[in-house]
Nucleic acid binder design. Structure first.
Length: 1032
RNA sequence: GCCUUGGUGGCGGAAUUGGUAGACGCGCUGGAUUCAAAAUCCAGUGACUUCGGUCGUGUGGGUUCGAUUCCCACCCAAGGUACCA
């Protein structure tokens, strides 16, 4: 009986579905285990072999935990809102919901054929209204919350209002906007309703604010940094500028410290923690205020007259980590987009400053950060007053200062900071030295540990630490600053000018946002004619004709009914990609609940995710935002844990191995008359080869000329000769000259002028055999490469080897490998094993389908090992050898799974089966536990073998075999005997022999004497059970 | 630029605490079987070699009886860098 994997896999997939084998119960006596893979975005291209990598790992662990007696929750769903579906909709007019549905169907088929133990009854889709109802609900909870720094948690805004009524906001310590004015209880009572709303918005955890975005006027939309290439949009190449826009933001900065502290409690990879730590970017220092000296008239910009205050003078606030160097400040630099720039710039500098600001608006933030070589800036003409010396300090603007970091302004201390130093040098700004005994003629001195301050008045002679302490005290005394902890983390922008995302449950009354009552959710995405922004530049939802909120009917109505009394306009932005993924792990616990995001019973039982596997590219997006939402949910009492995933593993990327063939193309170098020489390439004119020799070049040339000669006809028309040569790039001058000459002349001309140019040509990996040979017939029949139809290849060997290069898997690189064909040819079990066998889970590694034959033949050997047992036969007693093989396998596999080292267990299985086959093992006592060991990795074959062993129940919950040390005890070991660290021979020595006895035995050995040749060793190192090293 | 990860045969990779470098698999070579092919099985396979050995884990140093493993400096590649998911 052969290993018929197609039949076996179909059979068990059907069995599992029918028996709901993997359905998790919310009510069980067993200990719980929640294993989660990051859910995919269902793209149109379907799954490629990189996607299942993490899923297989999670599946192996889940199945293992079932064998270990756990009640396992292992769900799957789809992150189904996203840009690609919208992009496709823009191009084709197809509704994103339809393409998304189709894509999900395809994903589901592909996932099903891989034999995952998912509990599909819990599937979620972020674009499903029943799901995003709860995304909207969380948004409302955030809107109705503020962050109380005294209790260090989020609280209800209702409580904040009662505090305002009682005592105003003077005593409140809250995470709020920087420009929040101070008011008393009486003032609060006197404010209009709108002012109250406006003030509360400054405290809410989600709020409206002006944020900088990459605006592309031509496309009428905001672009992600990676949609911008060289300062223009990737699509269409239109200019992009930085622009301020009113958008929803999430006050994640309130949680900065807790997000940082929480990292200590969770078992996540250190690099991932590092990137979150850096992202949050905590730094200690001081905020210092500098008064602007050039007085000009200015007004507070707030439109609301109640909030307009009279500022006595303009001040620039900076954050610095080195307040100790304040006496070394010789200029200040503002980000070009800093609010004060237009206010302080003098008339004389105005033109230059404006030009610079405009130029900077065209540069991306990443570009500005990465480019440290170009120094640029402009003097504003204004001066600030040094808080201590009262000396004037010139104020510059420079694009090395980013508006989004700190206050968007720095006090520049050139002697202590290299970028300030470079800037000062470049613009001839003085570089006062305030360090004792340090030479700053070449570069800045930034070594805090060895700092001794000089030329700094009351700070002279102090170390960094002492000076910081003293200067902060002094700044506080004169009212010019204070000690401050600054975070690089910014509040997260939560609005997107897109169609295919969650609508905000928000309508506007008198310009102020109002929440729709939660009982009326979900607020469903409206239909639109076009998925593009409107002509007036509003987001796509601006195209909807029914997008207004009727407050009385509590329903969406036609825009024409808007009267701003009972019917109000709805929000036109949608939520970002990370909205739907920030609590999905909790929703899986109770996904069909329509009354609550999840029941209390469900969250109390499942608590949190025990194992979360996904890509590290989510480190500072999804994985940070979801921690933020979890902490918020915790504060408001909805979840019992403030970190949702105890352990997280990043699976590496599977890269593609692109294939190339080498082309040898004849070309003519011609002089175009203007001194430049131009290559005329004969593109269609053949040659695929894998050699690179001169003799080959000569052969290519000879054959090419022969073909031209054979096909030569007297010609008088340009296009004819063009067709003959198949040369789209041939130059006109060459053509003209060729026209005039005879066949003999043409041949002579070609012989003199032709040179062979070599290049790589990218081909589809589908046309490459397992041994890296080009399958020529398939390649020539591929319509993608139809220009090669007329190719007449020359080869010098029987086969053409392709050149391989490792690159990211992508459609455009023709290197995408889908799991479907592999499942068809080798089966899901082979694919699962092979994906694990490729290498460590966390590392990125290239895919090469060729190697799969190894694991496939392993499965065939495994199958063969069990065939004598067909019919429940085979109660043979196991031999000591059998038991040793089995138990060493149990030990290794168990350790491997616990350490997520799945690649090494596959090797272990291979060794085990090779050994048992050699031992001709037919013992049920060995083969039964082996089937269980294999089952997490290759579940279909394991189920089938289990059944053949006479079991009627699924293998899924069979207890994991128990390792017993006694079968592995050895009495002796083959010691490596090395001389000066180099292995010379091996010697069998009993393991119970002591150090001295071993040394004596080794020294007495004839080979030792042979090596020493009479010398006396200086030293003999004996490590019992390990090694012997003789030195001398 | 900054942060992070990685670099071992022709290829993917293994090597538990510093202790036999290259397990296991692919590929390749030779053989068996076959009319032939596929499949299967057996043997070999880091490089060089005067067949004694010598060299060898990105490069250059260091620590050690002993370094893929620890330390320092450098080179290269990949991922992230705030609206791709």
């Amino acid at each position: 009986m052969n290993y018929d994997f197609r039949k076996i896999e179909a059979k068990w997939q059907e069995y599992w579905a029918k028996h709901e084998t993997f359905k998790a119960s919310n009510d069980s006596d067993k200990p719980k285990f929640y294993a989660l893979s990051m859910f995919p975005y269902p793209s149109g291209a379907g799954l490629h072999v990189g996607h299942p990598l993490g899923y297989i790992a999670t599946d192996i662990y889940s199945r293992y935990k079932r064998h270990k007696g756990f009640n396992v929750l292992h769900p799957m769903g789809y992150d189904s809102f996203g840009l690609p579906a919208e992009q496709y909709a823009i191009q084709t007019g197809q509704h994103p919901a339809i393409t998304t549905e189709n894509n999900i169907k395809r994903y589901r088929e592909q996932l099903d054929q891989l034999g995952f133990s998912f509990d599909w009854s819990r599937e979620v889709r972020t674009s499903n209204p029943q799901y995003y109802k709860w995304t909207q609900w969380i948004f409302i909870q955030l809107f109705n919350s503020w962050y109380n720094k005294k209790t260090d948690k989020a609280e209800d805004v209702v409580d904040l209002v009662s505090l305002f009524e009682k005592e105003g906001n003077t005593n409140i310590e809250a995470a709020c906007d920087d420009d929040t004015p101070i008011f008393t209880a009486d003032e609060w009572a006197s404010f209009s309703e709108k002012t109250k709303q406006e003030l509360l918005l400054k405290y809410r955890l989600t709020y409206l604010a002006d944020t900088e975005v990459n605006w592309c006027p031509a496309l009428g939309t905001v672009l992600a940094n990676d949609e911008i290439v060289n300062g223009v949009s990737e699509r269409g190449g239109h200019p992009v500028i930085r622009k301020k826009m009113t958008q929803w933001s999430m006050r994640i900065t309130a949680y900065a410290q807790r997000l940082l502290d929480g990292l200590d409690k969770i078992d996540w990879p250190q690099p991932l923690k590092d990137s979150q730590t850096n992202w949050i970017g905590r730094s200690e220092g001081a905020s210092v205020r500098f008064r602007v000296m050039s007085e000009k008239l200015r007004v507070n910009e707030s439109e609301n007259s109640e909030l307009r205050t009279q500022n006595p003078s303009l001040e620039i606030e900076v954050f610095t980590t080195r307040p100790d160097t304040i006496f070394g400040a010789s200029f200040m630099t503002l980000a070009p987009e800093h609010d004060l720039v237009p206010k302080i710039t003098t008339a004389a500098q105005k033109a230059e400053v404006e030009a610079y600001v405009e130029a900077t608006a065209k540069r991306s933030e990443r570009d500005r950060m990465a480019d440290v070589k170009t120094i640029s800036g402009v003097f504003t003409g204004a001066y600030a007053e040094h808080p201590f010396t009262k000396e004037p300090i010139p104020i510059w603007i420079g694009d090395y200062v980013l508006a989004s970091y700190g206050t968007g302004a720095v006090m520049a201390v050139p002697c202590g900071d290299q970028r300030d130093y470079d800037f000062a040098k470049h613009y001839n700004i003085p570089i006062p030295n305030i360090f004792e005994g340090v030479d700053i003629s070449e570069e800045a001195f930034a070594d805090k540990a060895n700092t001794v301050i000089a030329n700094s008045d009351f700070l002279n002679g102090l170390s960094y630490k002492e000076a910081v302490k003293k200067v902060i005290a002094a700044l506080e005394r004169i009212g010019h600053g204070k000690g401050k902890v600054n975070y690089r983390l910014r509040d997260a922008v939560f609005s997107r000018q897109r169609y295919w995302g969650e609508p905000f449950p928000v309508y506007y009354v008198d310009g102020m946002p109002q929440m729709i009552d939660a009982q009326h959710l979900p607020l469903e995405l409206p239909e639109v004619e076009k998925y593009l922004p409107t002509e007036t530049g509003e987001p796509p939802l601006g195209n909807a004709t029914h997008w207004a909120w009727d407050l009385e009917q509590c329903t969406v109505v036609s825009n024409q009914l808007i009267d701003n009394k009972k019917v109000f306009p709805l929000e036109l932005n949608t939520m970002p990609g990370w909205a739907g993924s920030s609590q999905y792990f909790n929703r899986y616990m109770d996904p069909r609940n329509d009354e609550a995001i999840f029941s209390k019973e469900a969250i109390d039982y499942w608590q949190d995710v025990d194992l979360y596997i996904g890509g590290s590219e989510h480190a500072t997006g999804h994985l940070l935002y979801s921690r933020f939402w979890q902490k918020f949910m915790f504060d408001r009492g909805y979840v019992p844990k403030d970190e949702y995933a105890q352990k997280l593993i990043n699976q590496g990327m599977i890269t593609g191995t692109s294939a190339f063939i080498k082309l040898a193309t004849p070309q003519i170098l011609e002089d175009e008359g203007d001194g430049s020489s131009k290559a005329a390439l004969f593109y269609k004119s053949f040659i695929i080869s894998d050699q690179d020799t001169h003799t080959e070049d000569a052969e290519v040339k000879r054959l090419f000329i022969k073909r031209i000669a054979d096909e030569y006809r007297p010609l008088d028309e340009l296009h004819k000769i063009n067709r003959l040569l198949g040369a789209p790039a041939i130059g006109e001058k060459t053509l003209r000259s060729l026209l005039k000459i005879s066949k003999e002349g043409l041949i002579k001309y070609l012989e003199e002028r032709i040179e062979i140019s070599r290049s790589y040509f990218r081909i589809d990996v589908d046309h490459v055999s397992n041994s890296d040979d080009l399958i020529l017939s398939e390649f020539l029949n591929d319509t993608k490469f139809k220009e090669f139809k007329e190719f007449k290849p020359i080869y010098f060997d029987k086969t053409i080897k392709v050149h391989r290069e490792v690159e990211k898997m992508s459609k455009s690189k023709y290197n995408v490998v889908n799991p479907d064909a592999i499942c068809e040819e080798y089966g899901a079990d082979s694919l699962r094993l092979y994906e694990m066998f490729l290498g460590p889970l966390e590392q990125s590694k290239p895919w090469n389908t060729a190697g799969i034959t190894g694991v496939h033949s392993f499965l065939k050997k495994l199958w063969k090992l069990y065939s004598p047992l067909e019919g429940g036969e085979g109660g043979v007693e196991p031999t000591a050898e059998n038991l040793k093989t089995l138990h060493k396998t149990i030990k290794k596999v168990e350790e491997d799974i616990e350490n997520f080292s799945f690649n090494t267990s596959v090797s272990t299985f291979m060794i085990c089966v090779n050994e048992l086959t050699a031992q001709k093992c037919t013992s049920k006592a060995i083969l039964e536990p082996l089937a269980i060991l294999v089952s997490p990795y290759a579940p279909h074959i394991a189920e089938e073998l289990w059944e053949r062993l006479g079991h009627t129940e699924s293998i899924a919950e069979a207890p994991f075999p128990k390792f017993e040390e006694k079968y592995l005890v050895e009495s002796s070991k083959e010691y490596p005997i090395s001389f000066n660290g180099k292995l010379r021979f091996k010697l069998e020595i009993p393991l119970d022999m002591g150090k001295e006895a071993i040394e004596a035995a080794v020294m007495a050995h004839e080979k030792t004497q042979e090596q020493l040749q009479g010398r006396t060793p200086k030293k003999v190192i004996v490590v019992p059970g390990k090694i012997v090293n003789i030195v001398g």
